[in-house]
């Protein structure tokens, strides 16, 4: 797949699913909303840590979104792997994340958006984490 040339007036977000669970409603909605807000968004589906890292490096992602769908222990491993390989790229997480798991992930320094999160908060987070606000 050819790498699109990087536009200077936006930030690029790669969104992946860490679990082998094909439910796509959440990540699709978030990707759509971030796209509408002016970000370049790439959805890459169910991927292992090394695949997410490879895509994020190749695309020079400014932010990585992980849909974790309740699978917390595996998400923690993926976050640690990304942190080690791409320490400068911020990560945010969405999906079915019970309160206890939300606290654990937040303690790792990632932002967590469980079901019922408002899209404007997710878009604001993208602006804050990438340092780029297409809306201005």
């Amino acid at each position: 797949m050819p790498v699109p040339s990087r536009q200077s007036n936006t930030a690029r977000i790669v969104i992946a699913k860490t679990a082998l669970d094909g439910h796509w409603r959440g990540p699709q909605l978030v990707a759509h909303a971030l796209g509408e807000a002016g970000y370049e968004v790439e959805l890459i589906g169910m991927r292992q840590a090394d695949e997410i890292i490879a895509t994020a490096s190749e695309r020079q992602a400014d932010l990585i979104g992980l849909h974790i769908g309740g699978h917390v222990a595996v998400a923690e491993q993926v976050i640690e792997a990304i942190r080690a390989a791409l320490p400068e790229v911020p990560i945010f997480v969405g999906g079915v994340v019970p309160p206890w798991a939300k606290k654990r992930l937040e303690a790792m320094g990632v932002e967590v958006y469980p079901p019922g999160s408002q899209m404007r908060d997710i878009i604001n987070a993208a602006a804050r984490l990438t340092g780029f606000d297409p809306v201005g």
Binding site: A19, L20, Q48, H71, Q77
Partner: peptide, 11 residues
């Protein structure tokens, strides 16, 4: 693919 997500198994 499952080994990479061992701790998801059974959830």
């Amino acid at each position: 693919e499952v080994v990479a997500r061992a701790r998801d198994v059974g959830l």
